[in-house]
Amino acid sequence: MITFPNAKINIGLNVVEKRPDGYHNLETIFYPVKLSDALEVIEADKTAFSSSGIEIDATPENNLVYKAYSLLTGDYDLPPVKMHLHKVIPFGAGLGGGSADAAFMLKVLNDYFELGLTSTQIEEYAARIGADCPFFVQNKPTFAHGIGDQFKPVNLDLSAYEIVIVKPPFSVSTPQAYKNITPAKPEFNLQQIEKLPIEDWKAVVKNDFEKSVFPQFPEIEKLKNQLYEAGAVYASMSGSGSAVFGIFRHSPIDLDRFLPEGIFIYR
């Protein structure tokens, strides 16, 4: 069975407060995009994991796809499987690729072996893998809060626009992104975004991580500005970076001339 785990972008990201447990409460919009990995699962004599595409710098047992399989085998008598992941979604980019892979693995195993799990039950398993992992079960525009693990549906449809994702040839770690972050109550309620024309987003829909990441990585801020120069109606860093996305009314022509060499472009 083959499935295609897709990435997400964060439209707005507010770091609201630091919690007593050391984590931070966030508010953001998760929006699914077309950029996808490919995941194949077949029965085998022995459980094995392989990959292609972007190199995965981890042992098979530490990959989230493998962890999803191991999680279900703890409760169900699943046979051995061969897993192959073709990796396209970049790491350290704020696009949720690893979480998507794990969530889609749970869904594939549920369908392939007819486990009969409901979406809610799959989400409960996914939450044990990562805070944003359950989002990819329903895979619909969502307002996320708490540590990014509490969800409310959002009536947001960007299908009439083209979303372009660009990424510099480096990643941003979460600790780097949190450096110099000062939690604060946001001025704009992201749950109201569906009522706001996209032309007005630039003034009020902010990613708080940009204030921390841009001084450390000015190349990322430059990419955002270049997307605006190319005609984006809205542009932002996704999550904690390093990817930046632009939302265009029409497909941008000659986008390459606005961007420096070595930049990865996903459309």
Rank of each mutant, 00 (worst) to 15 (best):
M1F: 10
I2R: 12
F4T: 04
P5I: 06
P5Y: 09
P5N: 13
N6R: 13
I11Y: 00
G12S: 08
V15C: 12
V16T: 13
V16A: 05
K18I: 03
R19M: 05
R19T: 01
P20R: 13
Y23G: 11
H24I: 06
N25Y: 07
T28W: 02
I29L: 09
I29T: 00
Y31S: 01
Y31R: 05
E40F: 07
I42T: 14
A48S: 15
S52T: 15
S52Q: 10
S52D: 11
G53N: 12
G53F: 05
G53Q: 12
I54L: 15
I56M: 11
I56C: 13
I56R: 06
I56D: 04
A58P: 08
E61Q: 15
N62H: 09
N63I: 08
L64P: 00
L64V: 00
V65C: 12
Y66H: 10
Y66F: 15
Y66L: 07
Y69H: 10
G74W: 08
G74D: 08
D75Y: 11
Y76H: 13
Y76G: 12
Y76F: 15
P79G: 12
V81H: 06
H84G: 11
H86D: 10
K87M: 08
K87A: 01
K87P: 01
K87V: 02
V88W: 07
V88A: 05
I89H: 03
I89K: 02
G92W: 04
G97H: 02
G97L: 00
G97E: 00
G97S: 00
S99M: 04
A102V: 08
A103P: 04
V108K: 05
V108Q: 04
L109R: 04
N110R: 11
Y112Q: 12
Y112S: 06
Q121P: 01
Y125L: 07
A126N: 01
R128H: 08
R128I: 02
C133D: 06
C133Q: 01
F135D: 00
Q138F: 10
A144E: 03
A144M: 11
G146A: 09
G146K: 03
G148F: 02
K152S: 15
P153S: 11
D157W: 09
E162V: 06
I163P: 03
K167T: 01
F170C: 11
S171Q: 15
S171F: 07
P175E: 12
A177W: 00
Y178P: 01
Y178M: 12
K179W: 02
P183C: 07
K185V: 14
K185S: 14
P186T: 10
F188W: 09
N189F: 06
Q192F: 06
I198E: 01
I198R: 03
E199P: 00
D200L: 14
V205I: 15
N207R: 12
F209V: 02
V213H: 05
V213T: 05
P215V: 05
P215N: 13
F217D: 05
E219S: 15
L223K: 08
Q226F: 10
Q226Y: 09
A230Y: 07
G231E: 06
A232V: 03
V233N: 03
A235G: 08
S236V: 06
M237S: 04
S240C: 07
S240Q: 01
S242F: 02
A243C: 13
V244R: 03
F248Y: 13
F248Q: 12
P252E: 14
P252C: 11
D254P: 06
L255E: 04
L255T: 04
D256T: 15
R257G: 01
P260G: 09
E261Y: 13
G262P: 02
I265R: 09
Y266S: 00
